[in-house]
Amino acid sequence: MIREEAIKIPFQYAAGTAGSEFLINLRDHRQLTGSRCSDCERTLAPARAYCPDCGREGLHSVNIGPGAELVSWTIVPDKGVFALVRPDGADTAMLHKLLGPIDDPQPGIRLQVVFREERSGHINDIEGFAIVQENGE
């Protein structure tokens, strides 16, 4: 016999100080936030409370984006296109969605973050990153 069951338990995940600042800035200012590590002199995207490389805490928040550069992407049927994008001013990439239409994307192509009109302090306040056309649109 095999018993079928679905586990449905609501959780409350704390975003942490830097994570909360990142989400609040998405919601209230349509702004991407990174963290600057004064030890390894890297700006990390998205914002975080400590540097994953050197372990330093107390990083400084900095504005990054709204422009970005495409690092990698993967097309997932029924889910869209996930992309690693490096926001302007950041040394690391963040993962989000690449907005279409997408015709043969290339690494290094210019992108622009697109925010949703309705925002709630959630990673999906970002609709995704759109390819900037040659005329700048």
Binding site: F11, S72, I75, F82, A83, M94, H96
Partner: peptide, 25 residues
């Protein structure tokens, strides 16, 4: 990560695709 990644629908398979794409570029 439940804040930045999980809500997007990213999973290990998508992570593998992103890594393979970097190699294939």
């Amino acid at each position: 990560d439940p804040i930045h990644l999980q809500p997007l629908g990213v999973n290990f398979s998508a992570a593998a695709g992103l890594q393979a794409n970097v190699l294939a570029q």
